[in-house]
Design a protein around this nucleic acid. Structure first.
Lengths: 155, 155
DNA sequence: ATAATCCTGACCATGACGGTCGGAATTTCC
DNA sequence: GGAAATTCCGACCGTCATGGTCAGGATTAT
């Protein structure tokens, strides 16, 4: 019952793209640098995100990736879904489950539970978008303890 | 983002124990038979459940396991927790997380999200207990299509 | 041309998972 | 006492997803 690093990394990368939104493409080399994530691995994930239609790529020297939509319009669910497929606690509640493949389908005591669980997870992920994510973060940083930082430095 | 078979099997076993509650111990051989699960594997899980205090064992010829509490008092969360440890989407939101081990803790944009997710998952699992599970099931079976069964047979 | 970048497929190591096995300990029953 | 039924335990194992690397090709700006 945990989120894969794949999804986690993917989301972190997407928040970087969200921050750069409207200011031209951001290279994954840059993402790898600020997020401290392995570049070669990010390349793979970026491929998934692109094929999923969440980002578009620009090749060549000043290339990189940029969101295809405004950050407010991209939910975390979409991101997770794109990089790691449908989130489904057990097979029999995934959308492409073929009715009948589980022999115990009729007498299964817990399927209802798993469906509720999936609904609940999906709901949480769906109702948060990238804009909120980066907004929450700036809130957090503004409230940061100990050393107050010059609040105009956001370069 | 899926529930392990371990947890799933564990829960299925527990529902069997719940059904047998008040009528003496139920052997895992029996559980394996009616749930079509591998006996040797169930033994392992039963060990976890016992060490977790959810069931107690009786050895010898008419031995087996029985719940230590009434089915209404055992939540699915407890069961899952016992067999597969804490459910936590990412490490930094588990209860035994040592603050600071994640270098990005301060600047993490998504921790709040993961915490909400964990809360949500826990809530769903906590608010369902074993009694409800087996009750839901009998409901389902009563509504079963095709062959209506005598609705007073609940032995 | 060169350097930066995306793109792709192949490869790989590790660990968790689901499962088996052998045998010891305990209890009941005959 | 012996046999059968059971829990108990530790060791073992094959498979698979995961997280990650690598080499090299394609594309584009300078």
């Amino acid at each position: 019952m945990r989120v894969s690093s794949k999804a986690h990394y993917g989301l972190r990368m997407m928040t970087e793209f969200a921050r750069a939104y409207g200011r031209g493409p951001l290279s994954i080399a840059e993402v790898a640098r600020v997020e401290h994530l392995p570049l070669a691995y990010l390349e793979q994930l970026a491929g998934l995100l692109r094929r999923g239609g969440l980002v578009e790529s620009t090749r060549g020297v000043h290339g990189g990736y940029s969101l295809t939509r405004s950050p407010e319009l991209i939910s975390v669910l979409e991101v997770v879904h794109t990089v790691e497929g449908e989130v489904s606690p057990v097979e029999c509640v995934s959308t492409d489950y073929v009715s009948g493949s589980c022999a115990r389908e009729g007498e299964c005591a817990s399927r209802g539970l798993w469906m509720r669980l999936k609904e609940s997870i999906d709901a949480v992920l769906r109702q948060t978008n990238l804009a909120e994510l980066i907004h929450d973060q700036s809130l957090l940083e503004a409230m940061a303890p100990a050393e107050p930082r010059p609040e105009t430095s956001h370069d």
